[in-house]
Write a protein that binds this DNA or RNA. Structure first.
Length: 196
DNA sequence: CAGAAGATCTGC
DNA sequence: CAGATCTTCTGC
């Protein structure tokens, strides 16, 4: 059994543009009531505060996005379209930067993920192949907003020295403003990436 | 205070 | 391809 190495604060205290590609291949672990669930991150997007009209933090702090302006390493979780939750890792230096976790490969606790996802999830690659699916599979909701991934015993990021061979950089999904910025990254040829 | 938009997903 | 579903923010 290899020792667990957490993604550290310094790693996350950088521009979202640097953190987003570097989070590919890292492990996200949720150890809650439904048992231990582990996924490997395969798709991310950078959101860049006041430099990014598509970011929730573009116009400064509000009650909803307050966590985005806290120190790096917190989870920012919001409700999307009144139905789905989306989970982000706050990064940068209290400047509203965050990385949206868009897709992941299920590694452990797959039964729990399938139960959480319900009827639509038949194949493993349908469990976490989108931000809403990922949050649902892992049970991440608004109650996780503000959780410190470096201090929590329920939710954290691990580095097990997995380095994806080839990354693809392209434009972000589902936004209307700053739609041309190439701030989305995913692992090439990974079956769990959204919209394939 | 009303209205519109929204970092999505699913089933038809 | 449209409906689900509701919170948040903006403009009047």
């Amino acid at each position: 059994m290899t020792p667990r190495r957490l993604v550290d604060r310094e790693f996350l205290a950088r521009d979202a543009l640097d953190v987003a590609p570097d989070l590919l291949g890292k492990l996200l672990v949720v150890d809650g009531g439904a048992g231990r669930r582990v996924v490997r991150i395969v798709e991310t997007e950078a959101y860049r505060g006041s430099d990014d009209p598509a970011s929730h933090s573009f116009r400064g702090p509000t009650p909803r996005n307050a966590v985005m302006f806290s120190p790096p390493g917190r989870l920012y979780v919001y409700l999307s379209y009144g139905i789905h939750h989306c989970a982000n890792v706050v990064c940068g230096d209290r400047d509203g930067h965050a990385v949206l976790l868009r897709a992941a490969a299920p590694l452990d606790g797959i039964d729990a993920m399938r139960r959480a996802r319900g009827r639509a999830a038949t194949r493993d690659r349908d469990l976490c192949s989108g931000p809403g699916k990922l949050a649902q599979a892992l049970g991440l909701d608004r109650s996780f907003d503000g959780v410190d991934l470096l201090e929590s015993s329920t939710c954290w990021l691990e580095d097990d020295d997995c380095h994806p061979s080839e990354l693809v950089q392209t434009t972000r999904v589902g936004i209307s403003r700053a739609a041309d910025e190439p701030w989305r990254w995913y692992v090439a040829d990974d079956a769990n990436v959204s919209r394939r």
